[in-house]
Design a protein around this nucleic acid. Structure first.
Length: 494
RNA sequence: GCGCCGCUAGCUCAACUGGUAGAGCAGCUGACUCUUAAUCAGGAGGUUCGGGGUUCGAGUCCCUGGCGGCGUACCA
């Protein structure tokens, strides 16, 4: 188009200029392109559900949404309007709206938000349609939507401009609706069982509860270095000491580590703790909770993840850590002998140079050899003590702790144990971690004196669990990457 | 971090071993009162991710930077 100074303008600027021109024409005709409200009577899905009674009573319905398609034929226009519940055809006629109103209607474009009022009928081809008696422009869009047929494919654009992705890719909206239902179902499950939902600090002077490198920040007024939490575990257990007995929190955690298809620097965990229970009780709870979730989100308690059917109706497989390792490798590692572990690690192509301790070596072998095979829901339990500084000693097996991890679809989705509540033993474990830290292990945990003080007041026997909400969302939405289940995954700035 | 691949019109994609940057959709003009990936006719739209180099000539080859994807490492 020609701008006032005569320069030729192309590309997106031209497209925007044309849309703004239409907006200005509407304004000149007395139409506010950004009005304040619109009285909605029905959602799209309501119209479909109530079709018979709406048509019999000749009810005028009022719908609002985004124009997703337009097909003009001179004095009539067909199109589709989309709201959060779906997409519905509308039909506007010049003779019904009048010449002026129809002329303005022609200034409505794909991507604009409009409200329409009219009654419901079926066209001769059988499509449910609203006959537009009146309409209002609710918001004029001055950028075009991506192509109607292929939508938005470019992953970078999809993640950076998630709003556009959500407008044009309905399956993306479904993923996030499912994620929301997952969280809702878990929350409901816990509330129904007497758990109290709590909130604990994200800014922490000492970070703990997991092995990871933290993000650091600074509070100016207190002149205090603070860490963004890597877990809320130690705070929730302080609340157990305080007498709440059953608590949970959906917590955003932050870990200063790499980004890949199963890791985002901020992610969501659900941690819960229950007094007077142990890790066996929690295995049953996880099994039951996931069955409830799968019933809600899957088909008959079954889902498909990356081509594998996963059945949550059956009891989970339970296998001890060392048994799982022996089954997969043919080697018995119970002796924890360093050369046995190093030999095996080398056989599976693990760089033995980075194996700081025997336990670390086992962890790596497990991750390499066992974990990918655990497609069906599986509990791996009774881990070596050295990997678990916050878990309670096994009641009968020296060197082990009462800990389990649930696996689904080849992913670790959580971590649970009978919580260590002996303050003197906890102090010894922290000191071991501190020693590892001084030897250069940046992920070793930090001594938390206040947490020890809390334990000294007495914490009941307690079961604790953390579930990776993003990982579960991936599994229940059949998503290959964590970015598909986060609205705004971490990206470098444009 | 490292390796491989990618980045061309608003979007989805073409362009052989270096030889005039194209198509579809969207948008624009016109026709059209039950269409639905509407149709028909016409026209418009480009910093080929940025910078540098080789060459008579670079979307294409080389160097460098940016962003992304996938894999790998650390991790949940």
């Amino acid at each position: 188009m020609d701008t006032p100074d005569g320069d030729r303008v192309g590309g997106i600027e031209k497209i925007k200029a044309v849309r703004i021109e239409k907006l200005e024409k509407l304004t000149e005709a007395g139409v506010n392109p950004y009005p304040y409200r619109f009285e909605v009577s029905h959602k799209v899905e309501d119209v479909a559900r109530l079709e018979t009674e709406l048509t019999e009573a000749e009810t005028v319905v009022a719908l609002a949404g985004r124009v997703m398609a337009l097909r003009g034929h001179g004095a009539t226009t067909f199109g589709h309007i989309e709201d959060r519940s779906g997409r519905l055809q509308f039909y506007a006629r010049k003779d019904a709206l009048g010449p002026d109103s129809y002329k303005n209607f022609k200034l409505v474009e794909v991507g604009d938000m409009i409200g329409i009022r009219g009654n419901v009928f079926r066209t001769k081809t059988g499509e449910l349609t609203v006959r537009v008696g009146e309409y209002e422009v609710l918001s004029k869009a001055i950028r075009p939507l991506p192509e109607k047929w292929h939508g938005l494919q470019d992953k970078e654009l999809r993640y950076r401009q998630r709003y556009v992705d959500l407008i044009v890719n309905p399956q993306v909206r479904e993923i996030f609706e499912k994620r929301s239902r997952l969280i809702h179902t878990m929350r409901r499950y816990l509330l129904d069982r007497g758990y109290l939902e709590v909130e604990t600090p994200i800014l922490q002077p000492i970070y703990g509860g997991a092995s990871a490198r933290p993000f650091m920040t600074h509070h100016n007024a207190l002149d205090l270095d603070l860490y963004l939490r890597i877990a809320d575990e130690l705070y929730l257990k302080r609340l157990i000491v305080g007498g709440f007995e059953k608590v949970f929190e959906f917590c955003k955690d932050f870990r200063n580590e790499g980004v890949d298809r199963s890791h985002n620097p901020e992610f969501t965990m659900m941690e819960c703790y229950s007094a007077y229970e142990d890790y066996m009780d929690y295995m049953e709870m996880v099994e039951d909770m996931m069955r409830v979730v799968a019933t809600e989100l899957g088909e008959d308690g079954k889902i498909t993840y990356q081509g594998n059917q996963i059945d949550f109706n059956k009891p989970w497989r339970r296998v001890r850590f060392f048994e799982a390792l022996e089954e997969a490798t043919g080697v018995d590692f119970r002796s924890m002998e360093e050369n046995v572990i190093l030999d095996a690690a080398a056989r599976y192509g693990i760089e033995t140079g980075k194996i700081a301790t025997p336990a670390k070596g086992l962890d790596l072998i497990f991750g390499e050899v066992v974990e990918p095979q655990l497609l069906q829901p599986t509990f791996v339990y009774d881990y070596p003590k050295a990997l678990s500084p916050l878990a309670k000693d096994h009641r009968s097996k020296p060197g082990l702790v009462e800990r389990f991890e649930p696996f689904i679809g080849g992913f670790e989705v959580g971590n649970a144990f009978s919580e260590l509540n002996d303050p003197r033993e906890q102090r010894r474990r922290f000191e071991e971690q501190a020693a590892m830290r001084s030897r250069g292990d940046e992920e070793a945990q930090v001594v938390d004196e206040d947490y020890l003080r809390a334990l000294e007041y007495g914490m009941p026997p307690t079961a604790g669990l953390g579930l990776g909400v993003d990982r579960l969302a991936m599994i229940f939405t059949d998503s290959r990457s964590i970015r598909e289940v986060l609205f705004f995954p971490q990206m470098r700035p444009e």
